[in-house]
Amino acid sequence: MRKYGKNILFLAILALLIYVPGKCMTSKFMVKNHLANCKNGVHANLMVEPKNSLDVLIIGDSESYTTVSPMQLWRDYGITSYAAGQPGAKLSDSEKVLKTAMNKQTPKIVLLETNNLFRIDRKETMSKDYISGFLYKHFKLLKEHNVWKSPLMEVRGKSYKGFHVSRKIKPYTGGDYMISANQKVKISNRNLNTLKNIKNICDKNGTQLILYSAPSPKNYNYDKHVRLAKVSKKMGVTYIDLNTKVRELGIDWYVDTRDKGDHLNLFGAGKTTDYLGTYLDYHFDFSDNDIDMNVKSWNKLLKKYEASTGDKERQWTLEIKNQF
């Protein structure tokens, strides 16, 4: 009997060690204590956003949150948005983010950056998926186990609704990259199905899905453009490929990229944000949004954002506004 008691005690302590910290890890707690800076943190950050406060949701991998600055969209167009991309996100990760967001938001537009359509997303077996789902639901520590990284991730700097200010410049010097290698680009069936699911979630919530490709010589070429254009046409979704508008945007690959053409930096993001903001402003009506309650908090954050960015990108980006 004593032996059983000992074993039960061991397991009980173990269950407590795993269960109790998870119970404390509410979205509010995590955001308040700066524990939501990791990949999964985007879920907690979205959950603390006031209900129905977002006009636009941006999802995808790192290409998404390095191309759209929500604070700039707010300042110049009065559009509230959240850059809910995750580093190295698979398309199914973006679907999960969308589901989390839709618990509290009904954005008018979901902007899905297309880079993760080409990322391998292995299908989990039913049992693995079910078990993981069960464990993550009941033992939140397992799902959020990477929180210990959060303080380290703050090195990246403060998040402005998912956007991080990066002034790093590492030029891309490879020249024109939107050329065809006459290669057939494949998007896996799993990703195509996930894309359909994303479209269905948007449709159900009265949200319009827009696909867009961030300017990135490292990740895009003309063959990918053709494939994405075909997919979006087939699905009846608008597709904006910013790689075909590099000149129009005024992207200068000597200064607008932080890592040799993989991602844009603050200066590049200013240009793409302005293009997308102008596009959204021209094609959609965001005047009926109910964000009066949050104007103060948005403006407060905007002040901090402007203090950290200066007004350089504002000068650059105002120039292309009148194109629409």
Partner: peptide
């Protein structure tokens, strides 16, 4: 030792999203 190993796996293990 047991708890340390288990908790190290739970917290520092490379699993889940990403």
């Amino acid at each position: 030792i047991y708890y340390s190993v288990i908790m190290a796996i739970v917290i520092f293990g490379a699993y889940g999203e990403g």
